[in-house]
Nucleic acid binder design. Structure first.
Length: 225
DNA sequence: CCGCCGATCTTT
DNA sequence: AAGATCGGCGGG
């Protein structure tokens, strides 16, 4: 799809209505936005397929934690990881199913000082590269917490949304195994810009070395192709 | 850059 | 007891 440079189109509910793997591939290159100007281009995401995916929090059904994923698509699913960090997903697919896309890493492109402040731990200044490199860091840079669980990303009133600015992913998108799973680690449902320094790991970065990878079987969501 | 470990809450 | 993680530390 061709869009004039600079124009920003908010992603609609329809964008998230399809298969989480297709949504994940299409999300790479899209921009996460806060009303205060914080913006970051997604370079790494993972698809989780719900009740049929042993790696998904929804594998055991609609538990209190996984409840949001069974609702409408386009909403934020936030969970607390290792008792320390928040991680953010976008719910995908029809209501009643429970797939989602985990936002793993992004390139900061707007209000970078605000992100640095949000990530400030009282020690040394963080490099730009470390602001959004990883799901926990991305959430911290954008101030996403459990209070945002269920937030509607397709409504600007939520204070957090996603746009297509027409710039694209800026490189080839490849599929690799998902990170940090003991079950469901085989399928190539992690989508990352090959060689991106903003990714938490990649085919050309140490953590991604030697891992299998493959082409992205990407079918763009029908109404946006 | 790599590997190890602890933090500290949720879920099983 | 393990987990969709991260930062600090030590070593190469």
């Amino acid at each position: 799809m061709v869009r004039s440079a600079g124009a920003e189109t908010a992603l609609t509910r329809e964008f998230f209505a399809g298969d989480a793997r297709d949504v994940a591939g299409a999300l790479v290159g899209m921009v996460l936005v806060r009303p205060d100007g914080r913006k970051a281009r997604l370079v790494e995401v993972e698809a989780y397929l719900g009740t049929e995916d042993p790696g998904s929090h929804a594998f055991r059904g609609p538990t209190p934690r996984a409840r949001i994923m069974f609702g409408p698509c386009g909403r934020l699913y936030v969970y607390f990881s290792y008792g320390v960090h928040w991680c953010a997903n976008v719910v995908c697919g029809p209501e009643g199913t429970a797939s989602a896309v985990l936002l793993r890493a992004a390139q900061p492109i707007g209000a970078v000082p605000a992100m640095r402040q949000a990530r400030w731990h009282g020690q040394r200044q963080l490099r730009d590269r470390d602001l959004c490199r990883g799901p926990g860091r991305l959430c911290e840079a954008f101030g996403i917490t459990g209070a945002d669980n269920g937030l509607d990303l397709t409504a600007p009133t939520g204070g957090l949304w996603l746009v297509d600015d027409g710039a694209g992913a800026g490189g080839e998108i490849v599929a690799t195994p998902r990170v940090g799973l003991s079950r469901g680690a085989d399928p190539l449902w992690r989508y990352v810009v090959a060689g991106s320094p903003w990714a938490s790991a990649g085919p050309t970065s140490p953590a991604g070395r030697g891992r299998p990878e493959g082409p992205v079987p990407h079918r763009p969501p029908s109404r946006l192709s």
